[in-house]
Computed example of a mutant assay.
Amino acid sequence: MEIVFCCLFSYMIYLAPLQGFTDFVYRKAYARIFKGVDAYFIPYISMKKDTILSKYAKEIAVINNPQARVIPQILPGNSNEMVLMAKQLKDIGYNEINLNLGCPYPMVTNRGKGSGLLPYPDKIESILTSYFEKWNSGLSVKLRAGLQSASEMEQIIPVLNKFPLKEVILHPRIAKQLYGGTILDETFLAAYKDLKLELVFNGDIFTFSDYKKRKQQFPATDKWMLGRGILMNPFLPSEINEIDLTLEIRREKLLDFHRLMLESYLEIMDNEGNALNKMKQFWFYFSYNFPNPAKALKHIKKSKNILQYKSEVKKIFYHLY
């Protein structure tokens, strides 16, 4: 039985763009089975020789993104790339895009992209200027607190305030922390104080308790981006929205979700082995839905083919759930 205790909420929940995980297969399956996500962000796309790389074609195809609000994230290194990618996405039909100033990985930052732009507010201003010279809306920014130091935010916020950005999504860590270390609460509070734009919190909300803690810390915040928390617990947005589900309904939804994911990967992958590897990757987080995640993941990892995999999945659902 599904019980909704409240139907009017003043906050919004976004699905974060996680490379290798929240692809169009995941997003479509999730939207069909679960409730509570208001916007889906496509993991960053990049370009070569003035064209978005063909490997992203399925990710950004409108037919693969039927949700009400889908926002592709772009990873430009300069103004020219910003304009070209924005135009190509707008030509496809997207009226909203997200600028990635947050990717913390050295392979990106060393090329002056993602968080690699944060020490250079003049470059960020040039990129934003080039966009708004052609379009007056439909752009948000996702960023870290800085590349090497959170003090970098002091130079970035005045730049962002110059433009009519839809919103700013802040993961309050510096890039060199990657996804470890502590969230820099004071940086988020400072951004909330000084930023003249809508601010979205992103980072380390894995459970409903985590959400309540952050909501107490930042009571004025009404937009939240969840990533790994949703991957580990697809019901997290429902829990935040105070939707109560029985254990049986939860199992049915997880089974349907898994079935849709597997069917889709078997359909789009060039062989079953690749589909199996993709599902094993998915289970790195999906295993957290079971009492003993390590045991569930161990069962999945030892699968050598799809038939064995399906057998292990059945055991997990009916003996471990």
Rank of each mutant, 00 (worst) to 15 (best):
E96S: 08
G102K: 00
K113E: 13
I52E: 04
S54T: 11
P119S: 14
Y56I: 07
I74A: 03
Y56W: 12
V108A: 11
N64R: 04
L117I: 08
L99D: 01
L117T: 04
Y94W: 08
V108G: 01
D91H: 11
M47N: 11
G102T: 02
I71V: 14
K48H: 07
N100P: 01
N78W: 02
N110Q: 15
G77M: 06
A68N: 11
K49G: 04
P104A: 12
G93I: 12
Y120M: 11
S46N: 14
C103G: 09
I71Q: 01
M85C: 06
I45Q: 02
N95R: 09
G116Q: 10
D50L: 06
N65F: 02
S79D: 15
A68H: 08
N110H: 14
Y56L: 09
N65M: 04
I45M: 08
T51S: 09
M85W: 02
M47F: 00
T51I: 09
K87H: 09
E81D: 15
M85R: 04
R69T: 12
L75V: 10
T51D: 10
N110Y: 13
K87N: 12
M107N: 13
I52R: 06
P66F: 08
Y120V: 10
L53N: 12
N95W: 00
T51A: 07
K48W: 02
N78L: 09
Y56N: 02
I92V: 15
G112S: 09
P76R: 09
K113V: 07
P104Y: 10
L101V: 07
I74V: 14
P104T: 12
S115F: 07
N95I: 06
A61M: 08
I42D: 00
D91G: 05
N78G: 13
P72R: 05
V70I: 13
I74L: 05
N100M: 01
G77I: 05
G112K: 15
V83D: 05
A61P: 02
N64L: 10
